[in-house]
């Protein structure tokens, strides 16, 4: 095998090697994401407590553990179905982004209220804040210790 053939093969194998190096980088990124997801899903992010519900659905006093995304409305596809004549089908959505909670009105007819203020588009939300969808009122709380 002459020098050129040898160096050509070094190049060829280096190419395949570099392709696999890229995969090593990819695998590291994937693994990190996976670990983050596991630790995130390991703990509940918060809970919503029903503090007032004239129609009874959801029942008063119900405590709902929250995912990163929770939708509220009259439509059955929502995470929390609010059976109230003043609630819209797709009423509002609660999201946990980074380290804070946000509430977003999804174009409801009667509006979403945060501590009595009507929410325009998106508003940040803190623990203890009160949320009103239709006539149903919720309170955002931390997960009870040990729960």
């Amino acid at each position: 095998m002459d020098a050129f053939t040898l160096s050509l093969w070094v190049l060829r194998l280096a190419f395949v090697g570099l392709l696999y190096l890229f995969f090593v980088f990819l695998a590291r990124a994937l693994w990190r994401d996976l670990r983050t997801t596991i630790t995130e899903t390991g703990r509940a992010l918060g809970r919503l407590i029903v503090v007032g519900s004239p129609g009874g659905v959801p029942p008063e006093g119900l405590s709902v553990p929250l995912d990163a995304v929770t939708s509220l409305g009259r439509d059955v596809n929502n995470s929390i179905v609010v059976e109230d004549d003043f609630a819209s089908a797709d009423h509002a959505v609660l999201t946990f982004r980074g380290r804070a909670w946000y509430v977003e009105d999804r174009g409801s007819t009667n509006g979403t209220y945060l501590n009595g203020q009507r929410v325009e588009n998106v508003a940040p939300m803190g623990f203890g804040d009160e949320l009103q969808v239709g006539r149903v009122r919720f309170r955002l709380e931390r997960v009870a210790p040990g729960a």
Binding site: F4, F15, L18, F25
Partner: peptide
């Protein structure tokens, strides 16, 4: 993360290109 990955993609493609061009030309 994207930058690092793109850098390694570029490196691989340049080496691959060199192997292809060298094979065709008969010299490095």
């Amino acid at each position: 993360r994207e930058l690092v990955l793109l850098a390694s993609v570029s490196m691989a493609l340049v080496v691959g290109w060199a192997s292809l061009a060298s094979h065709v030309a008969g010299s490095l």
